[in-house]
Design a protein around this nucleic acid. Sequence first.
RNA 1: UGGGGUGUAGCCAAGCGGUAAGGCACGGGACUUUGACUCCCGCAUUCGCAGGUUCGAUCCCUGCCAUCCCAGCCA
Length: 576
Amino acid sequence: MDNNHNDIAEKADQASAEATTETTQNFIQALISEEIAPGGRCEGRQVHTRFPPEPNGYLHIGHAKAICINFELAKQFGGLCNLRMDDTNPVKEDIEYVDAIQEDIRWLGYDWGDRFYYASDYFPAMYEYARDLIRKGLAYVCDLSAEEIRATRGTLTEPGTNSPYRNRSAEENLDLFERMKNGEFADGTHTLRAKIDMSSGNMNMRDPVIYRISHTDHHRTGDKWCIYPMYDFAHPIEDGIEEITHSLCSIEFEDHRPLYEWVVDNLDLPANPRQIEFARLGMNYTVMSKRKLLQLVESKSVDGWDDPRMPTLSGLRRRGYTPLSIRNFIDRIGVSKVPNTVDHAFLEYCAREDLNLSAERRMAVLRPLRLTLTNYPDDKTEMLEAENNPNDSSAGTRQLPFSKELWIEADDFMIEPPRKYFRLFPGNEVRLKHAYIIRCTDYEVDENGDVVHVYAEYDERSRGGVATDGRKVRGTLHWVDVNSAVDARVNLYENLFTIEDPDGAEDGYESVLREDSLTVLESCKLEAGLDEEKPGIGFQFLRHGYFCRDNRPSAEEKMPVFNRTVSLRDSYKLPK
RNA sequence: UGGGGUGUAGCCAAGCGGUAAGGCACGGGACUUUGACUCCCGCAUUCGCAGGUUCGAUCCCUGCCAUCCCAGCCA
């Protein structure tokens, strides 16, 4: 036990040594190593990545994977990682998300320095690049409607047909494109299309639209523009302008890569980036799509984007997950191209691992049962010393008030205990953590037969919890002194869904929402001082789990509110 | 009956021609003033399947099977 802390510190050292040594590289690291080596594509260049969210929603744990991969890769290779708002579609985006995204990334522990960009800042440059394409005969203004474009695109197995506008002259295209920009045309009447190959097996190469008309105010450029570039055209330009060396994205963009490369190859960009795809994160018992998360919020199935049951970063933060635990989680699940569904228990493991070392212990009775020590002096209150973290002696100790009247956990007493129940029952002896050994002498039940009061005698010589005669006392209970207890509300969270794969539910994910994903306990008794604590600090409530103060309690809330981050592992099973 | 991916344990994931790392989960045990932590032990004779090349194949070749993505003027 005394060696615990040393062992753990040693293990942490080993882990960080391994992280820096990095014996096995994932496929992206291996590729970058090759490319920056002599003769490689990026020889002499500084590795430069970017995280490019569209500001149209809140970040979730899946985004954390992309964030960690991009920022960590830059760090490992002595490079840089930019933060860029990919705001090329004004109808979906909003300024409110921009701040939230930055807050979440900072909270996760990453810093983009002064390299915070907006794709919309490049609109003028993109317009000029588009004109280059037109002049090279590689893009044309098309008058087909959206329906007509769809109809002529062909199908997965049949080639498409050329647009009748495909062979307009560069002069005519330049003129039309300028008039599109000047607002002479209504939405949907014209597009700028790349002239590639209408019979390509890759649908993305069948003369993709690269500019559309949208008379919509943009959250940053207002009404300055009424034509907006499409992702496939804009993204390689954004990367090129920022001199990104490696543009990482998720696997479903794999068949966009030929188009990405087509743009890079046909434009004279400041630097040529390379797109690399990896598998996005899937987790069981949750959904990850923005659309579905939004739906949960709008249907009031949850209490907002930051509901502690949500896989959003703001939800995980409110729940009490630490940034380190999330970074560790992402680091450990690895990077590959294999479709994956990571067990949520792995995330919980990472939270416990970090919190076990960093969280101070406190005592909290969630379902209180009154205990009276019949042989303890009536008006006495003594102070007992309690360690703050048995795994970290530097966390120090605190003084706990103790008296005749105490709260214990209702679960910790049974009139007729099953086998191997070593908590309190008539005649049995247990230890009150940090306090005394007590023996149950009596109990009271109400008209329903429920136990409402327990009586016990304490062993005066066992102060601190040590038996002077060396007798073994197996059970140790947590408790809270009645006089100094803090009344509180505690929220217990479970998975939002009843099945592992809610996306695959026959009747839709809403049909498998779990009814009891939130349990609100209104009459909890917390150790004194917990009402002074702020959100963001994790505590271990002894024998229960890790908790932190809610960062968004409702206005009318009078009691402190604590959220359970994750329970302690529990190998105790009540025998039937 | 197009194009592009992916298949190693319940879940992640190493492995790159020399005889299946590690983690999570799970099961057992030790320790214990948290039934926590920590520690120990167990957990793929086999790498989607079938052939082939080779002294030797998870790694190379061929075929097959399964599964995911693509027909937005979304990203």
